[in-house]
Structures are given as structure tokens and as C-alpha cells.
Amino acid sequence: MYTLYINNRHGSLVYQKDFLSDVKLTANDRIRLASTFHGLSAIAAQISPVNTSKRLPFGFLQTTGISLIEAEGFRIQCFETLTGLKFFAVASSTFPAVILDSFLKQVYEVYTDYVLKNPFHDIDMPIRCELFDRAVENLFNSIKGLG
């Protein structure tokens, strides 16, 4: 796994972490990449031929948009929360998708713990929490060997 991004519900990047040192992107590149992903995801939801959200009861609670982009050599996997946050990670295509999915959900879990319960964090603003950093790192270390 290479990089983890978190977008807020307005599509701007609030958190980003590289797990490999040889990723070479400037801060601006990352912001551009993250908001492009948000835009693509919104367009994908619009042009999708199946519209599940209207048919199902409580369908409006279902998230729409991109959950996986497969490319040659890497893939981008996204987990969108009901509140509109997007957790997405760039990983090599050999990395098991199930593990990546559960990793993103676990990141959401530590986000609710160490970010939302932190009185010094403003919602929708970039995340600067030491404890959150450490928790994400621990999560990554626990799955590192599996990939």
C-alpha cells in the first residue's frame, strides 16, 4: 500500500499519509489529486445507469460514487461514509482488496475516536492530531505483512 487520503464532504483533502518514502508528489499535487477524485466520484454517480438510491427503502442512505479504480499496476480503493467523508488508498494491484477495505474502515473507526473526540479539532479542517497519526501507523504496521 502506498498512500492514504481522507477527503471531507466538500471534497477537499483533510489528511494524507504516505507509507512509502519514494512517493514524490508536492503538497499541491496531492490536493489536486484528492479533489479530482472527489469530482470523478460525483460524476460517476450521476452517469451511472443503475440508480439504486431511489428504488430501495432507505436508499437515500446509500453512498454512491466510485469504490474501486483498477489500473495497470495499482488500484485506488475508496470507502465513503454516510456523512460524505471519503477514505481512499492507493495500493499495488497485488494487495488483497478485502484487507484494504477493512483497513479503510478501521481508519474510519480511529478517525471517530481520535479526531472527532478531540476538542482542538475543527470539523472539515485538516487533521493535525498526533494520536490519530500514531493510530493510523499502528494499523498500517498490522497489515503491512499481509500485502
Partner: peptide, 9 residues
């Protein structure tokens, strides 16, 4: 437990 104090505080 869940609070990380920012550097300026």
C-alpha cells in the same frame, strides 16, 4: 485518552 493537544497549545 482521545485528545491530542496541538503544538500552539
Amino acid at each position: 485518552k482521545f485528545i491530542s493537544v496541538p503544538r500552539d497549545f
